[in-house]
Design a protein around this nucleic acid. Structure first.
Length: 594
RNA sequence: GGGGACGUAGUUCAGUUGGUUAGAACGCUGCCCUGUCACGGCAGAGGCCGCGGGUUCGAGUCCCGUCGUCCCCGCCA
């Protein structure tokens, strides 16, 4: 292989096959770097030594595929290239075959500046030849193998589940696949193999896993693709701690495959605590938590500031940012997105001038150093908004959350903006965290109903069972997320294994008996035939590899990704289909323009 | 659904208050060059300024629309 030859190979004959990475034509002497996925080797063509061969080498162009045969020669000491593994040797060509010519590509794998992503995706086969992409794809392979090996060694079976399955109205939008033999009927591509893996527990495969593709028709981001890969697993009779142990085990193996040692067990934190300290259910632990400093202010202070005294007053602290100019402070403002009625005080110096005592308490409470950036996010004091004061009603909690999440989003945005200053975002610093005790339900404003926060098969805490009807907001679920540096890696829960409880949950979700049976009838029936307690989790493989690769986007670790509008630029999908195909499927397309 | 950034040579970019012939670097083509390794030197080719309207004596530049890519909010059980 092109990256394999070493000084010890000197004197041997070698055949190298690969791409022309670069040619350096010195006239009577031509150097060609030949490349494959293992690396580069310099091949030398000397006119004096072999005029015919030298002339042929002159015809070589970028990305031609060639075979070079010759003797491995130790380089003169002054011509050694320390930048490449094969730099001590070179191949003195004796024979050259052009296996295939290449058109001049739009960009070259060896280019130092990347073209824009549109071109990279359109000519993905060129892009994938780049070192960085070859590394990422190999890393992905190694991580997947490590996880398979680990789970297999722990007694888990990898079992496949269908891709063409049943559409369920809960959750994300489905990708649909029309049926030809049943016109007007559709399969759905799975958002996850959730129900199948639960049924595998009912079927007696008490430890299941699968590295499996999932599909969700939603809007996409740097960390969200239309199709993505999950490490899905489920086990019978587990406590949550048992699931966490398994996950910590395979993540240790996966990160080891990526060259990193990680520490277990991971930190644990309840959802409530995560919200209060980080304003997020996926806290990035690399920057300091926020602090509620409501107590530092007097009632008069808060009134003067126009701050609601019933809501939290959160400080964000970003270390070592130093003095900010007026303009830099102004640049912070657009980073703040108020959820509900939160407002931002971006000038702590001014607060300090007006309220020196409160400011001193804040400095003490947050442990802020002189060069730390401090910001305050509080609830807007609107008259007539305190009607729920005194009782912990859902509305109050919602307003609390608005302040927490507004502050939390700003905290993350600032941490990114000033990453160079606080220096806390070091490659290889992995802060894992279990976030536990998620709420069972969320209020769906659009549908005006309670919705499952995780999914409707998640088991509530035993102690909260009686609050299902009276106070749904207070019901905690046996649900947990594994979080790494502010990214949600995975999400799981202990499931409901009893039909009566499942029925109660559907009821709390406002589903009638008939609706529930129409949607999940097969599953409810399965629950009645002796279902062991079970639970599991699913982790995003793409995200794990992305973080290990130090990449900012899933597209860097997926060979053939889609754009934000779910288009594959290389194959140009999706496309319209012929009238005949539609007719066969019994489908008529209503075009938006008509 | 909403907000923001970008779109100029094959590529990455520059292009002043609207003004004459739209530039640079790399790449490409040809010639020269025997120790280069991001080789070097000389010469040359290469432009629907994303697309469609509009304002103007005059538009790469201003306005409206549209298409595409990226980032964020909503959404993602």
């Amino acid at each position: 292989m092109c990256g394999a030859l070493r000084a010890s190979d000197a004197g041997k004959q070698a055949v190298l096959m690969g791409w022309v990475n670069r040619r350096r034509d010195l006239g009577n002497l031509i150097f060609i770097d030949i490349r494959d996925r293992t690396g580069l080797t310099q091949v030398v063509f000397n006119k004096e030594r072999n005029p015919g061969l030298h002339q042929k080498a002159g015809e070589l162009r970028n990305e031609y595929v060639i075979a070079a045969i010759g003797a491995v020669k130790l380089r003169e000491p002054n011509t050694i290239n320390k930048n490449i593994g094969t730099g001590e040797v070179e191949l003195i060509a004796e024979e050259l075959r052009i296996l295939n010519e290449a058109k001049q590509p739009q960009f070259l794998p060896g280019d130092t500046v990347l073209p824009n992503e549109e071109l990279r995706l359109k000519y993905r086969y060129i892009d994938l030849r780049r070192d960085a992409m070859q590394y990422n794809i190999e890393l992905r392979h190694k991580v997947a193998i490590a996880i398979r090996d680990y789970l297999s060694s722990q007694g888990f079976f990898e079992i496949e589940t269908p891709f063409m399955t049943r559409s369920t109205p809960e959750g994300a939008r489905d990708y649909l696949v029309p049926s030809r033999v049943q016109p007007g009927c559709f399969y759905a591509l799975p958002q996850s193999p959730q129900l199948f893996k639960q049924i595998l527990m009912i079927s007696g495969f008490d430890k299941y896993f699968q590295i499996v593709r999932c599909f969700r028709d939603e809007d996409f981001r740097a960390d969200r693709q239309a199709e993505f890969t999950q490490i899905d697993l489920e086990m019978s009779y587990p406590q949550p701690e048992r699931v966490w142990e398994v996950v910590e085990g395979f993540l240790t193996a996966a990160f080891k495959a990526g060259g990193y040692q990680i520490k277990t067990p991971f930190l644990r934190m309840s959802y409530d605590e995560a919200m209060r300290l980080y304003g997020s259910d996926k806290p990035d632990m690399r920057v300091p938590p926020m602090t509620d400093v409501r107590e530092a202010f007097t009632a008069e202070n808060l009134a003067t500031l126009g701050v609601n005294p019933n809501l939290p007053v959160m400080t964000i602290r970003i270390p070592k940012v130093g003095e900010l100019s007026r303009k830099e402070r102004d640049d912070i403002k657009p980073l703040f997105v108020s959820k509900g009625r939160a407002k931002l005080f971006e000038d702590f110096k001014r607060l300090e001038k007006s309220f020196p005592e409160a400011a001193a308490k804040i400095r003490e409470k947050t442990g802020a150093q002189a060069d730390d950036l401090i910001l305050v996010v509080a609830g807007d004091g609107k008259p007539g908004e305190h009607k729920s004061a005194g009782g912990v009603k859902p509305e109050v909690k919602q307003h609390d959350h608005a302040v927490y999440t507004s502050a939390g989003l700003l905290r993350v945005a600032l941490a990114q903006k000033y990453a160079a200053k606080h220096g806390a975002f070091v490659r290889g610093d992995f802060r894992f965290l279990w976030v536990t005790d998620f709420p069972m339900f969320e209020w769906d404003d659009e549908g005006k109903r309670w919705a499952a926060a995780h999914h409707p098969f998640t088991s509530p805490h035993d102690r909260d069972m009686e609050k299902l009807e009276s106070d749904p907001f207070a019901v905690r679920a046996l649900a947990y997320d594994v979080v790494l540096n502010g990214t949600e890696l995975g999400s799981g829960s202990i499931r409901i294994h009893r039909q009566d409880i499942q029925r109660k949950i559907f009821h709390a979700l406002g589903l009638t008996e008939e609706e529930a049976r129409a949607r999940f009838g097969f599953f409810l029936e399965a629950l009645e035939y002796g279902t062991p307690p079970h639970g599991g989790i699913a982790l995003g493989l793409d995200r794990i590899v992305m973080i290990l690769a130090g990449a900012d986007s899933l597209r860097e670790v997926i060979p053939f990704p889609k754009t934000a509008r779910a288009v594959d630029l290389m194959v140009d999908a999706p496309t319209p289909v012929s009238e005949a195909q539609l007719k066969e499927l019994g489908i008529q397309v209503r075009r938006p323009k008509d």
